[in-house]
C-alpha cells in the first residue's frame, strides 16, 4: 500500500522560539498526483515545504518522500526532489544555459547527461530564445520558467513549487499553469498557493492548512460534497412578485429563498433546498403548473473559495467560544 504514496507526512511539527509554525501536520500524496497546498499567508505552507525538501529539520514528527525518511536519508530525498522556493531565487549574474548546467552538475548529473537534460528542459519550458541571456535581464515570467526548468533538470520524482505563479501577469500565469499541468503523470507535484481558482484548475488533491494545522485534505470533488450538502438553485421566472413569494413560502422543499429583479419582466430567485433535495425538478414543475415563463434554471456548485472560507470560518468561530 505504501508503494502508492509519494509523500507521507505524520505529525510534523515545527516550533520556533515563541511560536509554532506547523502543528501536528499529517497528510499523504499519491504518486502522479498534483497536490495543492492551500492556506492564507503565514499558515505554514513554506515551512512545510522547506522541511520536505530537507532544508530545515522539523521539531518532531516524521515524513517520507518516495519511501525514504527525510531526516535519516536526506541525500536520497534531495536527489529525488526538485524544489523551487518562494520568490524563485536565481543567480542573476549567470546566463540561463550556464545556470541550468551548473544546477544539473550540482545535482550529480554527468557532463554528457547534464547537456542532454538541459536541452530537454530548455525546450520543455520554452527557454530557447533566452538561453544565452543573463538571468538578471529576464522578465519575471521567464525567470519563473528558469526556476521550473531548474527543478526539472534532474528528472525528480517529486516537484515542490512554492507559490509558482506569484507576481506574474495573467498571460504568464496561464503559461506557467499549462506547463505544470503538462508535467502531471510523469512527476508528482506539490504546489502551494493562496489563489483558489488555481488549485481548482490544476490539482487533484487539496490540502487546506491554517495556523499550522490541516483543516481538510481530500480531492476537490469530495471537499465540495463535504461542504455542499444543500445546494442552491437559481431560476429566472416571469411572474408577479407577490405570487412568487407566496409560492416559495408554501413549498415544503424550500428552506429559504431570495428574490431579486432581473432584466425585463423576469425575477431572479435564489432558492436553497432542504438536505438531499434537488430543487430543479420542483421549480420546473411549479412553473409548469402555474403557466409562468422560465428562462434560466441552474444549480450553483460550491467553488473551492466557498469551501475554503467555510472551513476557515468554522475554525474561527470555534476559537471564539
Amino acid at each position: 500500500m505504501s508503494d502508492d504514496w509519494m509523500i507521507e507526512v505524520e505529525n510534523l511539527t515545527k516550533r520556533y522560539a515563541g511560536h509554532t509554525a506547523i502543528d501536528g501536520l499529517s497528510f499523504n500524496v499519491r504518486k502522479g498526483e498534483i497536490a495543492g497546498f492551500l492556506g492564507p499567508n503565514g499558515a505554514g505552507k513554506s515551512t512545510t515545504m522547506r522541511i520536505l525538501s530537507c532544508f530545515m529539520a522539523a521539531t518532531s514528527g516524521s515524513a517520507k518522500v518516495a519511501g525514504h525518511d527525510i531526516f535519516t536519508r536526506a541525500d536520497e530525498v534531495r536527489s529525488r526532489i526538485g524544489y523551487m522556493p518562494e520568490n524563485n531565487p536565481l543567480h542573476t549574474d549567470m546566463r540561463v544555459r550556464e545556470y541550468l548546467k551548473f544546477r544539473a552538475r550540482l545535482k550529480g548529473l554527468s557532463r554528457a547527461r547534464s547537456r542532454e537534460r538541459v536541452d530537454v528542459v530548455t525546450e520543455q519550458c520554452s527557454l530557447q530564445d533566452v538561453a544565452s541571456k543573463v538571468i538578471g535581464t529576464l522578465s519575471k515570467g521567464y525567470r519563473q520558467r528558469v526556476g521550473l526548468a531548474d527543478s526539472l533538470v534532474h528528472e525528480p520524482d517529486l516537484i515542490i513549487l512554492d507559490e509558482p505563479t506569484i507576481g506574474l501577469d495573467p498571460h504568464q500565469i496561464r503559461s506557467v499553469r499549462q506547463l505544470i499541468k503538462s508535467l502531471a503523470g510523469k512527476h508528482t507535484i506539490l504546489i502551494s498557493t493562496h489563489i483558489l481558482p488555481e488549485v481548482e484548475m490544476i490539482c487533484n488533491r487539496v490540502v487546506i492548512i491554517r495556523n499550522g494545522r490541516i483543516m481538510a485534505s481530500d480531492t476537490p470533488d469530495n471537499l465540495r460534497k463535504l461542504v455542499g450538502q444543500e445546494s442552491q438553485v437559481v431560476a429566472e421566472i416571469a411572474a408577479p412578485e407577490a405570487e412568487l413569494k407566496l409560492c416559495w413560502e408554501q413549498l415544503p422543499e424550500v428552506e429559504y429563498f431570495d428574490i431579486a429583479p432581473s432584466e425585463g419582466d423576469f425575477l431572479r430567485c435564489s432558492l436553497t433546498g432542504r438536505e438531499g433535495v434537488d430543487l430543479r425538478q420542483v421549480v420546473f414543475d411549479t412553473v409548469n403548473r402555474k403557466g409562468w415563463k422560465l428562462r434560466e434554471l441552474t444549480r450553483n456548485r460550491h467553488s473551492l473559495e466557498d469551501i475554503f472560507v467555510r472551513i476557515t470560518r468554522t475554525d474561527k468561530e470555534e476559537e471564539g467560544f
Binding site: 525538501s53 530537507c54 534531495r78 524544489y83 522556493p85 536565481l90 543567480h91 542573476t92 550540482l106 550529480g108
Partner: peptide, 14 residues
C-alpha cells in the same frame, strides 16, 4: 540575502 542559499542547500551536496 538572495535566497539562493535555499536552492543550494536542497541539492544533494553536503
Amino acid at each position: 540575502a538572495s535566497g539562493t542559499y535555499e536552492t543550494l542547500m536542497t541539492t544533494p551536496v553536503s
